[in-house]
Amino acid sequence: SEFSSRSGYGEYVQQTLQPGMRVRMLDDYEEISAGDEGEFRQSNNGIPPVQVFWQSTGRTYWVHWHMLEILGP
């Protein structure tokens, strides 16, 4: 990996993601499973900070930056 740390990767995702971009989950996290795909909606200063609309659940759920792989527009 070109990223030395999880936080470095998270910063990359945070700087790159734009609303509407497709993402894939890298880790299991509460209701969301690794491999689930969705659409980035928004972020804020909460914890976790990233709101994604997940195809698997049909609704939005908040996750962490480093848990997401960017699939593209």
Rank of each mutant, 00 (worst) to 15 (best):
E31M: 08
E69C: 05
H64Q: 12
E2W: 09
F40L: 02
T57Q: 08
S4G: 12
Q51G: 11
A34Y: 03
N45S: 12
N45V: 05
G38F: 00
N44G: 15
E37W: 02
N44A: 14
I32D: 00
L71S: 09
R22A: 04
Y29L: 02
V52L: 00
S1H: 08
W54Q: 00
L71F: 03
Q42L: 10
V52D: 02
G8Q: 15
E31L: 07
A34M: 14
A34V: 05
F53P: 02
R59K: 10
H64V: 08
Y61C: 15
W62P: 15
V52H: 04
Q15M: 12
V13F: 02
G35L: 03
L68V: 05
G46I: 05
Q51R: 01
W62K: 07
E37I: 13
Y9M: 10
M21L: 01
I70P: 14
L26G: 02
T16Y: 06
R41G: 06
Y29K: 00
V52M: 07
V52Y: 01
D36E: 10
I47S: 14
Q42H: 05
S56Y: 03
I47M: 12
I32W: 01
L68K: 06
G38K: 04
F3I: 09
I47D: 15
N44M: 01
E31H: 02
E39L: 10
R6H: 11
V13L: 11
E37T: 12
L26K: 15
G8R: 14
Q18M: 09
H66I: 05
Q51C: 11
R59N: 12
S4Y: 09
F40S: 04
D28W: 00
Y9E: 15
L17I: 11
Y9S: 03
Y9P: 02
Y12P: 04
M67S: 13
S1I: 09
G20K: 00
Q15C: 08
E39D: 08
M67N: 09
P73L: 06
G8H: 08
P19C: 12
L71I: 14
Y12K: 15
Q15S: 12
L17D: 07
P49L: 08
T60A: 11
R41Q: 13
S1W: 06
G46M: 12
W62G: 15
Q18F: 04
A34L: 08
S43H: 04
E11P: 09
Y12A: 10
M21H: 05
R22L: 09
G46F: 11
P19V: 06
T57A: 11
W65C: 02
V23P: 02
P19R: 09
T60W: 02
T57C: 11
I47N: 15
A34P: 11
G8I: 11
R24C: 02
T16V: 08
E11M: 12
W54G: 03
Q18N: 05
G72M: 05
S56W: 05
I70L: 04
W54K: 03
L26I: 09
S5H: 10
D28R: 04
D27F: 14
L17M: 12
S5G: 11
V50G: 07
P19T: 09
H64F: 10
H66Q: 07
L17V: 05
E39V: 13
P48H: 01
